[in-house]
Write a protein that binds this DNA or RNA. Structure first.
Length: 277
DNA sequence: TACCAGGGCCTTT
DNA sequence: AAAGGCCATGGT
């Protein structure tokens, strides 16, 4: 179900036309690391072990080769298509800086990724740059993920990663982060970290954070990223070097009231706006 | 509270 | 082409 129900089946494809969905911005604004643009301008990647190609046309966004069932079950939640971003952005415009951010970065949607993938990806992100993060994640998936045909691989399960061990991860060249990835994989695989519970709406951000920081190499920032991008906690608020700068320069007296409840989405607009301006 | 931990991208010289 | 700064950080 989409808030503004506006999709049609076009042969093998689903075409949607909804406000505030810029595919390139959404997939390349630093929240996910497994999407890339092909030569003809399409976007291709893998999520939930399903390869997907997206195409922006004048009729809307085409989900190539996707059934209605897969669209509803997988891609509507992944691309947060049930949320009314126009209403959200209107609310954000009550703040001066945010008003610029949502105008200049119009079309960003917050992706609802798999919890384990988000956790692992943001452990890899620490003290690292985006091109290299993508490289490490790509090598991890090729090394331990399931081959899905063509050049597509699933994100490896925590069990597979834990079994590989620190030495087994050497080929992905994650550096000092390898030991953190293994500790995370072990704690998720043995149930010490229970994403089923963290995913429950009644589990608070603080509760989730307290669980996640038990993992070596997971501090406040990586925990907040995992909750925001992987656990549907849209009020989680990761503070990296860019957001720290924004807080110091633009919000010395604290965050505006108009983002309460969805602070993480506001953060995504501010982060990308600051980084690209 | 500093400083250190892989490695490589990217800008500057 | 070589150098050096920097990077969606956390541990010690």
């Amino acid at each position: 179900m989409i808030a503004e129900k506006n999709f049609v089946k076009n042969g093998e494809n689903i075409v949607i036309n909804i406000p505030c969905f810029n595919v390139g911005l959404t997939l390349d604004c630093g929240q996910a690391f497994r999407w890339s643009q092909t030569e003809n301008g399409d976007w291709h990647g893998v999520a939930f072990s399903r390869p997907l190609t997206l195409r922006e046309t004048e009729n809307g966004v085409e989900f190539i080769g996707v059934t209605e069932e897969e669209f509803e079950k997988i891609w509507v939640p992944y691309f947060d298509l049930d949320r009314d971003y126009n209403a959200l952005c209107e609310r954000f415009k009550n703040d001066e800086q945010l008003s610029k951010a949502v105008t200049e970065c119009y079309g960003i949607r917050l992706l609802r990724q798999e919890p384990w993938e988000a956790l692992c990806s943001f452990i890899i992100s620490q003290n690292n740059n985006i091109p290299r993060i993508k490289g490490i994640v790509d090598r991890l998936c090729r090394l331990l993920g399931e081959h899905l045909g063509d050049d597509d691989y699933s994100f490896p399960t925590p069990e597979r990663v834990a079994a590989a061990g620190i030495e087994g991860l050497a080929p992905i060249r994650a550096g000092f982060r390898a030991k953190y990835i293994i500790d995370a994989a072990q704690k998720v695989a043995n149930g010490e970290i229970d994403f089923e519970k963290i995913l429950l709406p009644e589990t608070s951000i603080d509760e989730g954070r307290d669980e996640l920081i038990k993992i070596k190499g997971v501090g406040e920032k990586v925990a907040q990223c995992t909750l925001l991008y992987g656990c549907g906690k849209v009020d989680a608020f990761p503070i990296d070097v860019w957001v720290k700068r924004i807080l110091a320069e633009d919000y010395p007296d604290g965050l505006p009231e108009c983002i309460s409840g969805t602070r993480g989405i506001a953060q995504q607009y501010l982060f990308h706006w600051k980084r690209t301006s």
